[in-house]
């Protein structure tokens, strides 16, 4: 049952050291404010799941919070590589991390299977792809009806999923609009779900009947954090801060510059800083 609370409490109540956790958002509505709060609270040994880790997991990995990363595209979208994640994989800095790598199709199917309460996902994929040889969690099954060989991967079942959304109603129902990615599946697949939202409205009267709504009883905690997706965007509220993603390429290239940036913008800041960051976007 969704409870409204400050972000610090929502994160402290729902994330534990060693948890398997997903901070989802496919380019849009990325829960950066929630991740920054998790960084401030200093969790360790996390298994981080996300299709597109981007700068958010680059920051968490660079701060030494990750034991393992499960992903399908480890890039800074439209810009280049994830330099902190590379440093961890190539040089074990600040610690060694395990990786489990998939394709987007596999992870999207695995989230859906998790939401559907299935143990695995079956799809037509990975044919000729070498990932199937380096990732033991990519296997094959034969269709019992046609004999066609299909790919199988375990479903994704996070201990806790974090997402950002546009609106919550006073009752705690959550509305996600625009590019909805895998957020609905990631919430329904998880034991606990924490949502940050741009604003709270009385109810969802007038919303399209087919809109993407997560009922309040699927969510553990809601924190109101305007701008909480920055530097990604919130459809209908503010635009993607492409310049920040371009800048991240430089900040993340240098360990000292990274540490200084994290201190100023994350460790010494709070959720309230996000509203100002999107004020002109």
């Amino acid at each position: 049952m969704a409870r409204f609370m400050p972000l610090a409490d929502a994160v402290a109540d729902n994330l534990r050291n060693g948890d398997t956790t997903a901070f989802e958002g496919f380019t849009h509505l990325i829960p950066n404010a929630a991740a920054h709060e998790a960084i401030r609270q200093g969790f360790t040994d996390l298994t981080l799941i996300r299709m597109t880790p981007d700068s958010l997991y680059d920051q968490m990995i660079g701060m030494g919070m990750a034991k393992k990363v499960v992903f399908s595209y480890a890039g800074n979208p439209g810009v280049g590589l994830l330099r902190r994640m590379r440093d961890a994989i190539e040089n074990q800095w600040p610690r060694a991390i395990e990786t489990e790598e998939h394709s987007h199709a596999a992870m999207a199917n695995a989230y859906e299977a998790g939401a559907a309460g299935l143990p695995c996902a079956v799809f037509r994929g990975y044919r000729g792809a070498q990932l199937a040889q380096v990732n033991p969690n990519i296997r094959q099954v034969a269709c019992p009806f046609t004999g066609e060989t299909l790919a199988a991967v375990p479903s994704i079942r996070p201990d806790v999923t974090f997402i950002h959304a546009q609106k919550a109603s006073r009752r705690g129902d959550v509305l996600v609009e625009g590019i909805i990615g895998v957020q609905k599946e990631a919430v329904l697949a998880a034991r606990r779900a924490v949502v940050t939202v741009e604003e709270v409205v009385d109810d969802f009267a007038g919303v399209h009947p087919n809109a993407c709504v997560l009922p309040h009883w699927t969510i553990s905690a809601i924190a109101v954090v305007p701008g909480g997706a920055h530097p990604s965007y919130a459809h209908g509220y503010y635009a993607r801060d492409n310049a920040a993603y371009l800048e991240w390429d430089k900040i993340s290239a240098d360990r000292d510059l990274f540490a200084a940036w994290m201190k100023t913008n994350v460790l010494d800041a709070g959720p309230d800083a996000f509203a100002q960051r999107v004020a002109d976007l």
């Binding site: 597109t52 992903f71 595209y73 480890a74 994989i89 790598e101 394709s103 990932l131």
Partner: peptide
């Protein structure tokens, strides 16, 4: 370490 396959496979 390059970004990986994403949707491409």
């Amino acid at each position: 370490r390059l970004p990986g396959g994403g949707g491409a496979p």
